[in-house]
Amino acid sequence: MELLLALTIGVLMASSVYLMLDRNVIRFLFGLILLSNAANLVIFLSGRLTAGAPPLIDEGAYAPTGVVANALPQALVLTAIVIGFGLLAFTLALVYRTYRSLGTVNSDEMRLAEPVSAPRTTPHPDPTAAPGTPPASDPTLDKTDATTTPTGGEARA
């Protein structure tokens, strides 16, 4: 079972990495969810698997009677699940907000902080797609109000 679970972890990891390498931030988000699950399984499996014996102390006893499951990784995984959820909620809000402001979920087009100095690829036909590109460097972006209208996202939503 341990070996099979290790293989499953490998599949989860590979899928999550492939998703996180996508330029679409929604897929990136999916990858993040998978990565979180995979990491939790890694912690859990490292503490070994014990079937049918939860780490509880019987009434009247001072310590568990017989072998029970490893409590330590369970505590760690509990924490990790919650933190992973916090991270996910924040990332979700960030993706949503980015889409509202920039009108794109393509990370290539999110160039507001680090504009591409020379136009290297044809930007998205929608002017709101690449508001970070200086208007002077790109003849298709002569409408400078592109940077101030976040309505592009809403229009498509």
Binding site: A6, L7, I9, G10, V11, L12, M13, A14, S15, V17, Y18, L21, A38, V42
Partner: peptide, 9 residues
């Protein structure tokens, strides 16, 4: 991704 997954396993 594949290398990462195999290495994890």
């Amino acid at each position: 991704a594949a290398a990462f997954g195999i290495l994890s396993t």
